[in-house]
Amino acid sequence: MSGSEKPELIINGKRLDGRMPNQLRDIKIETGVIKNAVGSAYIEWGRNKIVAGVYGPKEALPKHVQDPEKAIIKCRYAMSPFSGVEDHSRSGPNRRSTEISKVTREVFENVVLLEQFPGGEIDLYIDVLQSDGGTRAAGITAAAVALASSGIPMSDIPFAVSVGKVGNQLIMDMDKIEDNYSDADMPVAISPRTGEILLLQMDGNLTKSEVSAGLSMIKEAGETISKIQREALKAPYEKILERYKE
């Protein structure tokens, strides 16, 4: 990265941006931002700005990718060339974005009721317009809202967030600078209804008890994130109801 020395990430119990160790960044979600899509959501998660859109279900093409029992999901996660502070990145898929697209798809294969659309295809697009660490989690959180806003049936609205470690301290939802110098990063997606883990990745070093503690922190943060997701979905309808309230 910048090549400079590792900065002190936690000073007097507070993080560089003033957050407490278990504190999420501010999250805002808005639906209906891509008119052509059947469902869409825009998320601002700290300095991350991400748009997610859904097309379909449509006939899966080419024919050989069709599953006669259920719909398939195609997912594309991509970062804009101007998303970062420093470099200009070439657009197009790379190994990182291809992997993120795959694990994201697998999250939604778990919760979308695919068997209702045999032979169908659902396309899910996640475009990171500005990035500041944790874009895969924010992208999954936004994509879940985009899917739910389309009316495609789902067993639940998953959320995702990452826990990291600095020294011996677990910290919730790392931004880019924390991510660059952290000792571990563990992004997780969960179905809040069942508590089941739908995405789990980790790199760095964590003890078994740190993994458990991290998962508990994520579960707790999930209550906040789920609430924001649900409110974003209901807001447009409630606004219209409000218009005709006596």
Binding site: A148, S155, D156, I157, E238
Partner: peptide, 17 residues
């Protein structure tokens, strides 16, 4: 207004959607 995953009845019952 309810969204996917939100509980609508406290017991298992058959309701469309």
């Amino acid at each position: 207004i309810v969204v996917p995953g939100e509980k609508v009845v406290n017991t298992p019952v058959r309701i469309e959607n």
